[in-house]
Amino acid sequence: MKKRVQGFLLAISLIGLFLLVKEADAAAKTTITVATDSDTAPFTYKEDDKFKGYDIDLVKAIFKDSKKYKLKFQTVPFDSILTGLDAGKYQMAANDFNYNEERAEKYVFSDPVSKSNYAITSSSGKTYKRLDDLSGKSTEVLSGSNYAQVLENWNAANPDKKAIDINYVSGTTGITSRLQHIENGKIDFILYDAISSAYIVDDQGLDLKVNQVEEQIGGETDGLEYLLFPKDEEGEKLQQFVNKRLAALKKDGTLAKLSKKYFGGDYVSDL
């Protein structure tokens, strides 16, 4: 009996020691706070108050079993994500971010994590496939987004044509709300990525038409999605860690698996 009690006490002591070591290891890890607006399905959204989406599961896979980092996701209005990176509140941003030169001056990009074409969503009775088709039409955009920049550039390059009516909205007016504004006649179209547009229209049962843009917009980075980091020493270290893990996840098929799960197809193997 005495030996049995001693064995039980030893087991309890070992469990306690294991828990203490585990807590110490967790405390020693660097917390990476990932900013996301939780309103850009299927890239990032919430379901039963849990973070979901391609970007979310991808980031989890990247940091899985990391001995150096631990993750924390935080919902942030889209137009506050980058200012939060600037202020050091977040160490990483995951929100279907595209590349542009203005961002590249201030932030560090991961290797691309998915590729989607631009698409124009309109009422079911209208078809817009080129930017010229949008002349004189109205839309809503988030200031500073790639989609806003594309439309602003078209207006600047076509002073002889009727300008696209660009209405700037805050990050609290999510893409789902903006698409609903087409259905109720408030605006004519939304320029957005094809994956998200088709997903939301189908998920919400909206009577809208999604057409991929037939012309090339931008350069080699057109349609590519990235994770973002602050442009400093820590941000660059994190970028290197993420890129190394991305290469491994692409090789083992994890990226393709997540793409098929959330996008309904393989949007990663050709990256």
Score class of each variant (00 low, 15 high):
V210R: 03
D96M: 10
F63C: 08
F18H: 07
Y226L: 01
D79H: 04
Y90S: 00
V5R: 06
R245N: 13
L191M: 11
A148C: 01
D111G: 07
D132H: 12
Y90W: 11
E183K: 12
L271N: 12
L246F: 11
L85V: 05
R245K: 15
K64L: 11
T44C: 07
S259N: 13
S197H: 09
D86T: 02
A194K: 06
Y118I: 09
L224K: 09
S123E: 15
K29E: 07
L14N: 07
N184I: 15
F263C: 09
S135L: 08
L179R: 09
T33I: 05
N184A: 12
S197Y: 09
K115Q: 06
G88V: 01
G218D: 09
P230Y: 00
A35W: 07
D270H: 11
Y262I: 02
G7C: 02
D25N: 14
Q74H: 04
F229S: 02
E214C: 10
I217Q: 01
F51W: 13
G218V: 03
N117K: 15
P112E: 10
V213Q: 04
L71I: 04
K64R: 12
Y147L: 04
Y107Q: 05
I200T: 04
N243G: 14
I164H: 09
D79W: 02
G174T: 10
L20D: 07
Q239N: 15
K126I: 09
N95H: 04
L228K: 02
E102L: 06
S80E: 06
Y69H: 05
V108A: 11
P77G: 00
L238E: 01
V108E: 05
